[in-house]
């Protein structure tokens, strides 16, 4: 009899505690949702860049290829320029005035 009374008391205490914690939980949930209401009305940031991972991957890949193309072109122009400067330094870039035609 005494044992069942103790168990009953414990259950009641537990329920009381959980009631208090549930009350706190519900209260905080309500407060949180109240605080979040203005966020619903807030305008979303406009995406100024494609958001899909595949699109992003393609764009970054294209950027890398673009830079490889640019570096390649720079190397070609640089090589061509060096060759021109070499010929100019040798002084053989100027045409002679009275050069005979071969045909």
């Amino acid at each position: 009899m005494l044992r069942s009374k103790t168990i009953y008391k414990n259950i009641l205490q537990c329920l009381c505690c959980s009631y208090k914690s549930i009350k706190t939980l519900i209260f905080s949930l309500i407060m949180l949702s109240l605080g979040a209401i203005p966020l619903l009305a807030q305008e979303k940031n406009i995406e100024v860049f494609p958001s899909a991972p595949y699109d992003r991957f393609i764009i970054y890949q294209a950027l890398v290829l673009f830079w490889i193309g640019i570096i390649g072109l720079i190397v070609i122009i640089r090589m061509k320029l060096r060759e021109i400067e070499r010929i100019q330094d040798m002084g053989i870039d100027k045409e002679e005035k009275d050069i005979p035609f071969l045909d």
Binding site: I77, K80, L81, I84, E85, Q88
Partner: peptide
Amino acid sequence: PNVLYKDF
């Protein structure tokens, strides 16, 4: 072509 190439 010297300066124009550098410009490029």
